[in-house]
Design a protein around this nucleic acid. Sequence first.
DNA 1: TGTACATCAGTGAACGCGCGTTCACTGATGTAC
DNA 2: TGTACATCAGTGAACGCGCGTTCACTGATGTAC
Lengths: 208, 208
Amino acid sequence: MKPKNGQTGRRGYHHGNLREALINTALSLISEKGAAGFTIAEAARAAGVSPAAPYRHFKDRDALLAEVAEQGFNVFAKGLSDAWAGGEPIPRVAFQRVAEAYLAFAREEPSYFAAMFESGLSFKLFPPLQEASERAFGVLRDACEAVIATLPAERRPPSMMMALHIWSLSHGIAALFARGDEARRPIPMKPEDLLEAALLIYLDGLSG
Amino acid sequence: MKPKNGQTGRRGYHHGNLREALINTALSLISEKGAAGFTIAEAARAAGVSPAAPYRHFKDRDALLAEVAEQGFNVFAKGLSDAWAGGEPIPRVAFQRVAEAYLAFAREEPSYFAAMFESGLSFKLFPPLQEASERAFGVLRDACEAVIATLPAERRPPSMMMALHIWSLSHGIAALFARGDEARRPIPMKPEDLLEAALLIYLDGLSG
DNA sequence: TGTACATCAGTGAACGCGCGTTCACTGATGTAC
DNA sequence: TGTACATCAGTGAACGCGCGTTCACTGATGTAC
């Protein structure tokens, strides 16, 4: 029987799951002080471990931040994918749900959001991060394709273009008005309603 | 006749224009290392001044950053306003120019852009910053109103809503695909074309 | 025009601090036999 | 089942560093008379 210590998950000399613990700790630090204020030393302290320990698992600060962002994209992709739910009951309704899920993510996971979109990490340097990002975008693109299929053949836009439009619009509203932190700008309506209205207008424009 | 030293603008013991010099220096530091990497000490060094000197002009790091962002919003507002040019020759054409100007700003002034939108400054703490931001938004809103006036009376959306839609869309494209720094995501088309297409679809949707 | 004085905008040294990272090390764990 | 050994995942002390900020100060400038 392995020794345990309940509360912290720490198992004596060996932490047991330091890697995950550091990622979670990073998340709360980011939510307290923003992505800029996050440091490896403080993450180590919060995880109850010596300042050298994180280097067993992450090359440096950026590598840890990149893993946070990557995990964020995975959570994000799952959120979008669940909202899409195969496009049931009809694609347009599911489509609006996906957009709502985008805003919900920005509101409920501002730390992930900051790490993913505002940490200044270069995607080139972290290929797994780029791949995770592309998977999330893929959900959006699939949804767009399903909606496009409901349009008359002669009015179908390229799905890549439409997906980029929807991503940009959702992202703009999320980053400016729906984020769950201090940088949110107040507006006199619900971000969800704002986005829903924009999507209706956009889809009207497509249908012609 | 005042002493001069040409190159640096420094005039002996007194700098002459340290306040502006620090803001400009901050801009180049931000473009080198991102808004997070900017420090007052380094700005002082780059301006050729002792580390205590900046405190004659700015309360602290955030205050300096806020002034950079504020100046950025002023440059931004001017760019949008020039592009709008009173809505000549016709509002829709001028409107597309405004959108282009948004992307141009993100591409050509990534440091301002980062300070304005990604530095994590709280607008509540810097009212002049908020006001500058609102002036820039005002240009966009005026442009929307002019375009709305060309629509049949029964199809006119609230100008506030339309302006927020356009802002979000432009901002999303700018932040994700058109910014002039490492965080830009590559896409297989020009951001300007992407935005132009989206606006055409949106305006079609409005016209019904 | 000259001078005394107030004010402004810098200096430079110093402080305490926390960070990132390295190093030789050691306790804990897993495995071959 | 026991034991020797390799490997893993930590420790803790130390380093050099640069930062933000304060302090008493002083050179430069502007102005009243």
